[in-house]
Design a protein around this nucleic acid. Structure first.
Length: 293
DNA sequence: GAAGCGTGGCA
DNA sequence: TTGCCAAGCTT
């Protein structure tokens, strides 16, 4: 382990051993496919809401081939109200690709994983590291926040992951893959439970005495502004309402069933067109609407 | 590189 | 109430 940050990373790894939550995707019997499903679901979505969806999903589709054998529409339906339903579409597409091009086995390397639909830098690393024990920097919003505070002395990370973030994380990783994986999950857990965004619990933090942000006197955030996305009244809200109708229906629905969910015709039509364009919905030959077959 | 993409809990 | 936030990805 790099000596220069030993005093920071060792206590965090130790802290994790005593404070890790028991989550269904952390069990000893969890395979890479389960890790992959959990990582897709956890993108921008709180743990508490993912847990039941994760269990139901794996019960129904215990392998990539099982999911690939079903329709993308069923994946979207099963996704329920987790949000960002394009993730369901991409998970289905990834499962299909795994089935046809990888012998039904979730790829092991970051590079191969990265080429799958819906898999970016974070998700590829998470599957490789937590699913296979590979050594790679796993950089999510929690890790970035913890490192920017504890190492760089800033109040928070910037709005997007940078190459510098990745390099910093990499520089902290122990040489042994098992220890590197443990540090990564520990950094994420510390960010999720202690070093939180709004009101960190520095009083119980294992590295508060070494934290560069503390030592600097907790300066204010000085990075580029983080835009908060409005939801009420946006196309996203309308898309959600439209898709909710399609998910609940067990057969194609007539347009009148969709027209009642939003009064602004222009916006509603635009949202519906967007869903069709994204492949989240399709029109049947008789003009009705349904989830993709 | 900014913008778009769901949903719901919480302060 | 309203704004902020939650294990990002794609175009």
């Amino acid at each position: 382990m790099p000596a220069e940050h030993d005093e920071l990373t060792a206590p965090i790894a130790d802290w994790y051993a005593d404070h890790a939550r028991e989550l269904p995707w952390r069990g000893a019997d969890v395979d890479p496919w389960a890790v992959m499903v959990s990582e897709f679901m956890l993108q921008q979505t709180p743990v508490a809401r993912v847990i039941p969806a994760f269990e139901a999903w794996l019960t129904r589709w215990p392998s990539p081939a099982a999911l690939a054998a079903d329709s993308p529409g069923e994946a979207v339906r099963m996704w329920g109200k987790l949000g960002y339903p394009r993730r369901a579409l991409r998970l289905h597409a990834a499962a299909s690709e795994i089935t046809t091009s990888h012998g039904g086995v979730v790829p092991r390397t970051v590079e191969a994983l990265r080429s799958l639909p819906g898999v970016g830098d974070y998700t590829a690393a998470a599957i490789a590291v937590f699913g296979y024990g590979e050594r790679a920097p796993v950089v999510d919003t929690n890790v970035r926040r913890v490192l920017h505070r504890a190492v760089l002395g800033a109040a928070d990370a910037g709005p997007t992951t940078t190459k510098a973030d990745m390099a910093l994380c990499e520089s902290l990783l122990p040489d042994r893959p098992t220890e590197a994986a443990r540090l990564s999950i520990a950094l994420m857990e510390l960010g999720a439970l202690v070093c939180t965004a709004a009101s960190p619990s520095c009083g119980v933090c294992p590295v508060s005495d070494e934290c560069a942000w503390q030592l600097a006197g907790r300066p204010e955030y000085a990075g580029p502004p983080k835009r908060v996305q409005r939801f009420a009244g946006t196309d996203r809200q309308v898309r959600g309402k439209l898709l909710d109708v399609l998910r609940a229906a067990d057969e194609p629905v007539g347009k009148e069933r969709l027209d009642v969910v939003w009064s602004d015709d222009t916006q509603r039509e635009r949202a519906l067109a967007g869903l069709l364009d994204d492949g989240l919905a399709q029109q049947t030959t008789d003009g009705r609407f349904a989830l993709p077959a």
